[in-house]
């Protein structure tokens, strides 16, 4: 169910990026898509009633000396969080680039409307 909502958010972003005529709105649409995917990744690692995936001394099994099975079964998956952190940094980079392109284009053309920015054709 939650995944479906995530997908809905993704589609809203895609719609916004494809349909809108304003450059800034296109950038916002792309960001919505980006966050929908990030949300999806975080939700993959989520576990109801999970514990933080930090290993300390209490988590070791006394007999075998290994990490206790109960810890493995109840801790949330830390990997998607690392993935999302990386993805957020990358999206920060592309966001900065897109915004600076928008500003530059506005300086040159005096408008954000992509239907009026059409020198390249054919």
């Amino acid at each position: 169910m939650l995944y479906a909502l995530c997908f809905l958010l993704f589609m809203i972003g895609l719609y916004c990026a494809v349909v809108k005529k304003n450059m800034v709105k296109i950038v916002v649409g792309i960001l919505i898509m980006e966050y929908a995917v990030n949300l999806f990744l975080v939700m993959l690692g989520f576990r109801t009633g999970g514990i933080a995936p930090i290993i300390d001394k209490t988590q070791f099994d006394a007999e075998t000396g290994r990490i206790a099975a109960s810890f493995i079964n109840s801790s949330v998956d830390p990997l998607p969080q690392a993935l999302v952190l990386t993805a957020i940094v990358i999206s920060l980079g592309s966001l900065a680039l897109m915004i600076s392109l928008c500003i530059r284009t506005y300086e040159k053309y005096g408008t954000f409307d992509i239907t009026e920015i059409r020198r390249l054709r054919g």
Binding site: F10, L14, A17, M23, I26, V27, I30, M33, E34, V37, F40, L41, L44, L79, P80, L83, A87, I90, S94, L97, M98, L101, C102, R104, T105, K108, Y109, I117, R118, R119, L120
Partner: peptide, 29 residues
Amino acid sequence: HEELEASFKYTVLGTIASIFVLFAIGMVY
């Protein structure tokens, strides 16, 4: 003028492509 317009177009489509790839990676994971 043309460089900025082309670059914006490329950036938007390229970023959308990257998000699709990231989404697919999430699905696979």
